[in-house]
Structure formats: C-alpha cells, structure tokens
C-alpha cells in the first residue's frame, strides 16, 4: 500500500462519515452531497483495489497476511455500496446516519489494512 494514498483515503472517509452522521442527526435526508461523498469513498476503495493488485508486481508486496488484507479490502468496498443502496430505498434521516457509520467503518478498516500491509508485531 502507498502511505499517502492511505492517509488521503482515511481522511476523506472520516470527513464524509462525520458529515453524514451530523447531517443525519440534524434531520437531513440523503442528498446529492452525502450520497456523493460515499461515492467518492467507494471510488478511492476501487483505486485501492487496483493498486493492491499492481503493487506486489511493482516491488511493494504486503509484509503481513495477504488473505487478511483482501478480506478487509473487499468487505470495506462493499460497505459504501450497501449503505447507498439502503439510502436510495429508504430516504429518511437515519439512512444518512447509516451512510456516515459505513464511511467511518471504512476509515478504520483502511487503516487496519495499512497496518497489515506494513507493520508486523507478532
């Protein structure tokens, strides 16, 4: 993984997550902005998937468990899709909160992926 890209991804997911949680609690229904922020989070996850496929061939292999890394990455990539699908089906303020929770979960998972890729403690 590439550290600066990971950091950008975590920052974006945290910002999108906080925005959606706050907007949802303030009573906003899913809007172009909140759904768009989730779409952006998903876009970066797809870029990350492509990068993770290419990186080992470019001399940047994962130092930890590749299986664990991919389980995280695939799960993370499914979250924004599921949250947005929910938001489209059910346009209530709580759907906005749910999108926020999904984005924050992605932030945690991406950071965990970075740790699996680079740092080995055990």
């Amino acid at each position: 993984m590439i550290l600066w890209f990971t950091l950008a991804q975590v920052v974006l997911a945290v910002v999108a997550g906080l925005f959606c949680v706050i907007a949802g609690l303030a009573g906003r229904r899913p809007s172009d902005v909140s759904v768009g922020s989730l779409a952006l989070v998903e876009l970066l996850l797809i870029v990350q998937i492509v990068a993770a496929v290419i990186a080992p061939f470019a001399g940047n292999p994962p130092s930890g468990s590749a299986l664990e890394f991919w389980v995280y990455l695939v799960s993370a990539a499914l979250l924004p899709v599921a949250a947005v699908a929910w938001a489209l089906l059910e346009r209530s303020r709580w759907s906005t909160v749910i999108m926020g929770v999904a984005a924050l979960s992605v932030a945690v998972m991406v950071w965990r992926m970075q740790v699996i890729w680079t740092v080995q403690v055990a």
């Binding site: 299986l67 664990e68 389980v71 799960s75 709580w94 759907s95 999904a102 979960s105």
Partner: peptide, 28 residues
C-alpha cells in the same frame, strides 16, 4: 424504525468484521 435501523447496521458491520477476521484466523 428510526434509530433501531442504525443499531442493526452497526451490528451488521460488527458481524462482518468478526466473521471476516475469524475466517482468516481459522484458515491461516
């Protein structure tokens, strides 16, 4: 209704995280 859905989603995310992790642990 309402916040109950958010609770379900948090549970679903935990279920996903715990399942993914234990799958990796058991396989490896």
């Amino acid at each position: 209704s309402g916040i109950g859905r958010v609770l379900v989603i948090v549970y679903a995310v935990m279920a996903l995280a715990a399942t993914g992790r234990s799958f990796v642990q058991i396989v490896e």
